[in-house]
Computed example of a mutant assay.
Amino acid sequence: MSAVEAIVGTLGSCMGCMIVVENIAKKEPSSMNLMTFATFFFIASQGLIFTSRFFTQPNKIPLRGYRAVIFWFFIVNVINNQALNYHVPVPLHIIFRSGSLLASLVLTKLLQGKNYSYRKYVSVIAITLGIVICTLATSHQGDSEMSYEEASKHFYEWCIGISMLTFALLASAYMAICQERMYAQYGKHPTEAMFVTHFAALPFFALMGSDILRSAERFSQSPHELFGISVPIPNMWLNLLANCVLQYYCIKFVYQLTSEVESLTVTLVVTLRKFLSLIVSIWWFQNPFTFQHWVGATLVFAGTLAFADIWDGLWKRLSGQKTIKETKKTK
C-alpha cells in the first residue's frame, strides 16, 4: 500500500466513521455501549481469523505485557463514546479529543520527567484555551428553549459529559505511555496489539450487558428503510455495521500510515482528518457553531500543528531544505 492510499484511506474511513457515529448518537443516544461493544467484537473477530488464526499464532508480546493497555483502552473507548449520551455535541467531542497533546505533555512531564521546548508549552496553552472557549460556548446551547428545571438537568448532565471527556483525555495519555513502555520492552507489533486489546477487553462488556440488550431491542424496532429505500434489516443495525467496518479501516489505515510516512505527516493527516470531520459535522448535521467555537477550534488545531513542529517541517519542504530524516537517507 502506498502512502497516498494510506492517507486517502485514513481520511475517508475515519471521517465516514464519525458521520455514522453522530448519526447513531442522534437517533439512539443511549446506545453507546452497544456501539462500543459491536466495534470491539467486529475488530476482535477479524483479528481472531486473520491475525491470530484462531490462536494458532503465538503472541510476540506476552499477555502480561498488555494488561495495562487493555484496561485503559477499554475505559477510554467506553467513556469517550458514552459522553455523547450526556448532551456533548460531536463538534465539541472532536475538539476536546484533539486536546490529547495537552494531557500527554502533562503526564509525560509528571511521570517520565521529560522536558519540552518553550514553543511546545505555548502550543499546549493555545490548545487549552481553545478547548475552554469551545466548552464555555457550548455550555448553555439550547437552554433558552427549556424550562428552568430542564435547563438545570441538561446542564448537570452536560457537566458529567465534560468530566467524562476530561478523564478520558488523561486516561488516553496514560494509556499511550503504557503502550510506549510495552513497545520499548517487547518491540512494535501493531496488528497483534490491535487484535489483543480488542479481544481481551470483550469480557468487560458483561458489566453492561443489560444496557446493551436494551439498545439491541430498540435497534431491532427501527424502520426497515435506508435513504428512502426499503431494506430487509432495521436501519440502525445497518448503521452499526457501517460503523464497525469504517472504524476497523480507520484504525488499519492509521497503523499503515505510521509505517509509510514520517511522524510529521501522520500528525498532519490526523489533524486534517479531525478538522474535516468537524466541518462535516457542522454542515451535515446542522450543529450550531458560533464565532467562539471557530476561535477555539482554530487555537486547538493550530496549537496541535505547532506542537508537532508542522510549520517548520512545511517551511523546510517549501523552501527546498531537507529534513533530518531525509538527510540521513541520502547519506
Rank of each mutant, 00 (worst) to 15 (best):
C159M: 12
C159G: 08
G161R: 06
F167I: 13
A168H: 01
A168N: 02
L169Y: 03
L169V: 05
L169I: 06
L169R: 03
A171F: 09
A171L: 07
A171G: 11
S172K: 03
S172E: 12
S172Q: 12
S172Y: 10
A173S: 14
Y174R: 11
M175Q: 15
M175I: 05
M175E: 14
M175H: 10
A176V: 00
A176G: 14
A176T: 11
I177P: 08
I177T: 12
Q179N: 13
Q179S: 15
E180G: 15
E180T: 14
E180P: 11
R181Y: 06
R181A: 10
M182C: 15
Y183Q: 07
A184P: 01
A184C: 04
A184K: 14
A184F: 08
Q185Y: 02
Q185V: 12
Q185P: 04
Y186L: 11
G187D: 09
G187Y: 04
G187L: 05
G187V: 03
H189V: 07
H189T: 14
H189R: 08
E192F: 09
M194I: 01
H198G: 00
F199C: 10
F199P: 01
A200Y: 15
A201E: 03
L202I: 10
L202C: 11
L202P: 02
P203S: 10
P203K: 11
F205P: 01
F205V: 10
F205H: 09
A206L: 15
A206Q: 08
A206D: 06
A206T: 14
A206I: 15
L207Q: 05
L207N: 05
D211M: 09
D211N: 10
I212E: 07
I212Q: 09
L213H: 04
L213I: 10
R214E: 05
R214G: 00
A216F: 01
E217G: 05
E217N: 10
Q221E: 15
Q221V: 01
S222Q: 03
P223C: 04
P223G: 01
H224P: 02
H224T: 08
H224D: 02
H224I: 04
E225L: 05
E225V: 02
L226R: 00
L226W: 03
L226E: 01
F227K: 01
F227D: 01
G228S: 02
G228Q: 01
G228K: 02
I229H: 11
S230K: 02
S230R: 02
S230D: 02
V231R: 00
V231G: 08
P232S: 06
P232N: 04
P234M: 05
N235Y: 14
M236I: 00
W237N: 05
W237C: 05
W237T: 02
L238G: 04
L240D: 07
L240C: 10
L240N: 13
L241Q: 04
L241C: 08
A242V: 04
A242L: 15
A242R: 02
N243T: 07
N243Q: 12
C244N: 13
C244M: 14
C244L: 06
V245H: 06
Q247P: 00
Q247N: 12
C250A: 14
I251C: 01
K252L: 13
F253K: 10
Q256L: 12
L257C: 13
T258R: 09
T258G: 14
T258K: 07
T258F: 03
S259T: 10
S259Y: 06
V261H: 00
E262L: 05
S263A: 15
S263Q: 14
L264E: 07
T265P: 00
V266C: 13
V266L: 11
T267Y: 14
T267C: 09
L268I: 11
L268Q: 12
